[in-house]
């Protein structure tokens, strides 16, 4: 299963905030064309780990490499150029711009940079892929919640990233939207994208992820296929507390 080349690897990645160790010596690899789920209870350091990869935060120690080249400690813009694109836990769109402009921003400044007609064509193609082809000229303020998430995803995809980071991209969707959302990520997976997703929705994890890393209190407590890790007694204990183990 895990036969693709290593795209992203973390070795001993650690982040301290004052006395608090939010991420404590995390190691894992992400292979090409793989969807890796980063899961764990609230406050276990998943989002912080994602922030370390994208450069929103600099790791206190440890190294993160993208195709063998170290990216840890680099500014976010450099990491984005090298090919890491992300969405945010709370959707962040560019409020003064149209949907098309939001996505064009990703095509112009992302990993693979385009300009002019090429950038716009790329943006339209990605919008079509996420199912928003008709909304290109809308203002972002007029969109429904799932559509704002789609725009953000399209913006991240527009630069053809090596790795896509999705921070709870499915959170807050209603059941119908959730189904659409899972289908969309399935489509990305079938295209052979490399994706790291932080997620709480268990159905999504089971159906989408090739591999899972489980975190608890900043440490990695399990790694494997979704089936393996979700039946691991330590993982169950981390989620449900000692009584249920």
């Amino acid at each position: 299963m895990r036969d693709g080349a290593q795209v992203l690897s973390l070795r001993g990645a650690t982040k301290r905030f004052g006395g608090l160790v939010a991420v404590d010596g995390i190691d894992f690899d992400v292979h090409e064309h793989e969807v890796l789920g980063l899961i764990g209870p609230n406050g276990s350091g998943k989002s912080t780990t994602l922030n370390l990869i994208s450069g929103a935060l600099a790791p206190t120690s440890g190294t993160i490499t993208l195709r063998g080249a170290p990216i840890s400690g680099q500014p976010a813009r450099e990491i984005a150029r090298r090919g890491v694109a992300r969405t945010f836990q709370l959707v962040r769109l560019l409020p003064s711009m149209t949907v098309l402009e939001n996505v064009t921003a990703g095509a112009v400044f992302g990993h693979r940079r385009r300009w002019g007609h090429a950038a716009e064509a790329q943006a339209l193609a990605v919008l079509e892929k996420v199912g928003l082809a008709g909304a290109a000229q809308s203002r972002v303020g007029q969109l429904t919640y799932i559509d704002t998430k789609r725009v953000e995803l399209a913006r991240a995809l527009a630069g053809d990233p090596e790795v896509l980071l999705l921070d709870e991209w499915l959170a807050g969707l209603n059941p119908t939207e959730l189904e659409q959302g899972i289908d969309l990520i399935h489509k990305l997976r079938d295209e052979g994208r490399t994706v790291v997703l932080v997620e709480h929705v268990m159905d999504a994890i089971r159906s989408l992820c090739d591999a899972c890393v489980v975190m608890s209190s900043g440490r990695k407590i399990a790694e494997g296929t979704p089936g393996e890790v979700l039946s691991d007694p330590e993982v169950v204990r981390a989620y449900l507390g000692d009584d249920n183990a």
């Binding site: 976010a76 450099e78 769109l93 630069g159």
Partner: peptide, 16 residues
């Protein structure tokens, strides 16, 4: 314009 809208998004898009 992107920076004026959201500086954090700008830097995560790869803008210096």
């Amino acid at each position: 314009r992107i920076i004026g809208d959201d500086e954090q998004v700008a830097s995560h898009l790869g803008i210096n």
